[in-house]
Design a protein around this nucleic acid. Structure first.
Length: 633
RNA sequence: GCCGGAAUAGCUCAGCAGGUAGAGCAGCUGACUUGUAAUCAGAAGGUCGAGGGUUCGAUUCCUUUUUCCGGCACCA
């Protein structure tokens, strides 16, 4: 007798070993139909898995996240099967689930084209219609290697050779196609109803750029057609928020061939920049930072001392003059240490927080550039905190607080935190690493923040916390950073005198909240879809006359608003008001002020918001109050 | 940097089989004096990213190159 305990704690008994799917049938035919897999005693298995002993059972359907993952993983296999049928000489490699879908990497004699994608997708549909059963087989390593070697799947052979000896090797077969896989998978191809291949791209085998480049096909898969459609519509919507597109539409900035990866800021974009910079300046001053300014072009000897010349040279722009070689600074830290080193420093001077809106240039690989998010010339809201080992944690907490406050002001509540710890290649004593990693972890825990631990991902000179925001397409961009540095202060001989008059090397914290102005503004554009809050909007108000008769009144009103400190534009063009409203709305200006005879007679203006809502007529005073209230929120 | 794709008027885009280019919007000129997301008319605007080649002839085909786009790698 086998007793199966279900999730509601009810127990079903069977007199012989039984498959999950049979149990589901026993519960209800509709459940059986929806069954994609199961957890048996907490272990994820196929629907065809046969239970031999008393067990706990949780059936996975497409309602569960695991169910969706199974669908996506099985769709990746379906893709591989279709590719093998259409292009038998292609070799399969790996095909994992990713957010919203899956990909599969193939080795093939030529890249796949968008036309191939159409054919492959059609073939996938056919295989779905055939509703092929998907079967699991467990075999020995040697047999598996023998099998894949015999059909020329060399990558699979490599993969199996790296699976630990004690792990069972499982294969999944559907039709003529057999793939190495841990599973689980849907019981048959007919369960895959809503998928679409999205793009082809090159990708390195095992993610190493020294290896062969494979052909990667990306796809998305969902529970049903509606979900798929929603996802595709969401992508379309997201595209409209693209900062490159909006930046052009609102004339905030442009990029051009003559200066790849460097931004030409237009008047409106630069207004935003200045607003942000001034806000940041005000915030860091409150937090005890001292703002400084250091040179952009610095002699090679400094970069040799700092180690950048040896380790970072590919990324540095260099120049020379009168037999001397210079580098355009890729970062501000060495210069900040030079400022620290001026005059003697006492422990009483610490923590010393030196801040700079520092213009940096890095010769990033051409393929990595992306709009204003990843550029070669950028300005960091940079600062370096020189402190003692004991002060690290408190400074970390202070910075986390500051960063969250700033993000909140800009409307970001959703921040991904990552803590990266010591890599294999590193400098600094282990006890210092212990101390530093603990300081950062404690700071995060102290604030009650969730974070992703990235072991071994720290810089060679110290651990770090990264603050990551997402763009409209779900791509993650690191903005803020907090890095401890045990290396540079020592290399550049930064010292302070401690209580006992001994010379000590300070710990240095690199930190930036926005990261770079360029990236942060890019994210702001996408976050707000160009509809910036009043305090950030480059143009806050536009005042429109209806006909020539109101020109004088309109001009006067405009002057008054400007004198009151509002960023206001005036549109006196001889066009219909509907036309002017359309244009101002497309420019996403928060408030449109309309002046006709009615307003002139009553000494008012009519206020319309960019969302189309009509706030009616109001006096200049009323408008002022309304705007001030919004700015003070 | 690697794989693939793209580059045509200020902007968004046509131009699918080689015969030196089209539209809409914007801009300009004129008319209209307008009440909440596009008034009408007219003229004008491009060595089709750059270099080289094939051809009687290249925006179109080939090649080199630059930049951009999608991934990958990178992001001490």
């Amino acid at each position: 007798m086998i007793r199966i305990t279900l999730t509601d704690n009810s127990i079903k008994s069977f007199d012989k070993p039984i498959a999950v799917l049979e149990i589901a049938k026993d519960i209800s035919p509709s459940l059986a139909k929806a069954t994609l897999g199961a957890f048996v005693n907490g272990i994820e298995v196929d629907a065809t898995f046969i239970i031999n002993n008393d067990s706990n059972l949780k059936i996975i359907t497409d309602k569960d996240n695991e169910g969706l993952e199974i669908i996506r993983h099985s769709t990746a296999h379906l893709l591989a099967q279709a590719v093998k049928e259409l292009y038998p000489t292609a070799q399969v490699t790996i095909g994992p689930v990713i957010s919203d879908g899956f990909y599969y990497d193939f080795s093939y004699e030529r890249p796949f084209t968008p036309e191939d994608l159409i054919l492959i997708e059609r073939k996938m549909q056919q295989l779905v219609e055939q509703n092929l059963p998907i079967k699991r087989i467990e075999i020995t390593r040697n047999k598996a290697i023998e099998y894949f070697a015999s059909i020329g799947e060399n990558y699979k052979v490599q993969i199996i050779q790296q699976i630990p000896e004690d792990q069972t090797i499982s294969l999944y077969s559907q039709g003529n196609f057999t793939d190495l896989c841990r599973g689980p998978h849907v019981p048959s191809t007919g369960k895959l109803k809503a998928f679409k291949l999205t793009k082809v791209a090159g990708a390195y085998w095992r993610g190493d750029s020294n290896n062969e480049m494979l052909q990667r096909i990306y796809g998305t898969a969902w529970r049903n057609k509606d979900e798929l459609q929603n996802y595709l519509s969401m992508l379309e919507e997201a595209e409209k928020r693209d900062h490159r597109k909006i930046g052009k539409q609102l004339s905030l900035f442009h990029l051009q061939e003559e200066a790849p990866g460097m931004v030409f800021w237009h008047p409106k974009g630069w207004v935003m920049w200045q607003i942000i910079e001034q806000y940041m300046r005000q915030e860091i001053e409150k937090d005890g930072y001292k703002e400084i300014r250091t040179p952009l072009v610095v002699d090679r000897s400094l970069w040799e001392k700092s180690g950048h010349w040896q380790n970072y040279s590919e990324l540095m722009f260099t120049t020379h003059s009168e037999k001397r070689e210079y580098a355009i600074k890729p970062m501000n830290c060495p210069c900040h240490i030079l400022v620290f080193n001026q005059g003697l420093k006492s422990y009483r001077d610490l923590p010393l927080r030196l801040a700079e809106f520092g213009s940096c240039h890095r010769n990033e690989p051409s393929g990595g550039l992306h709009g204003i998010m990843r550029v070669r010339g950028f300005v960091q809201d940079d600062a370096h905190i020189f402190c003692t080992e004991e002060q690290m944690e408190e400074e970390a907490i202070k910075f986390i607080d500051l960063t969250y406050k700033i993000y909140k002001k800009f409307g970001f509540e959703d921040v991904i935190l990552k803590l990266s710890t010591r890599p294999a290649k590193r400098v600094g004593e282990d006890h210092l690493w212990d101390l530093a990693e603990e300081a950062l972890a404690k700071a995060l825990k102290n604030k009650g923040l969730e974070y992703i631990l990235q072991p071994g991902e720290g810089a060679f000179y110290g651990p770090k916390i990264e603050f990551t925001l997402k763009d409209c397409l779900g791509r993650e961009w690191q903005c803020g950073t907090l890095q401890l540095d045990f290396n540079l202060p020592e290399r550049l001989q930064a010292v302070y005198f401690d209580k006992d008059n001994s010379k000590k090397t300070p710990v240095m914290l690199h930190r930036a909240a926005l990261g770079s102005f360029e990236r942060f503004i890019g994210i702001l554009i996408e976050h707000y879809e160009g509809k910036f809050p009043l305090w950030l909007a480059p143009v806050q108000l536009v005042i429109l006359n209806i006909s020539e008769k109101q020109i004088d009144y309109t001009k006067q009103f405009y002057e008054n608003l400007k004198n009151n400190g509002f960023r206001c534009e005036i549109d006196l063009r001889n066009d219909k008001v509907g036309y002017k409203i359309r244009e101002a709305t497309l420019q996403k200006i928060p408030y449109l002020l309309i002046v006709g005879d009615k307003e002139v007679d009553t000494n008012t203006i009519t206020v319309r918001k960019r969302d189309g809502s009509d706030l009616g007529q109001m006096s200049e005073m009323q408008l002022n109050d309304l705007l001030q209230a919004e700015l003070n929120q």
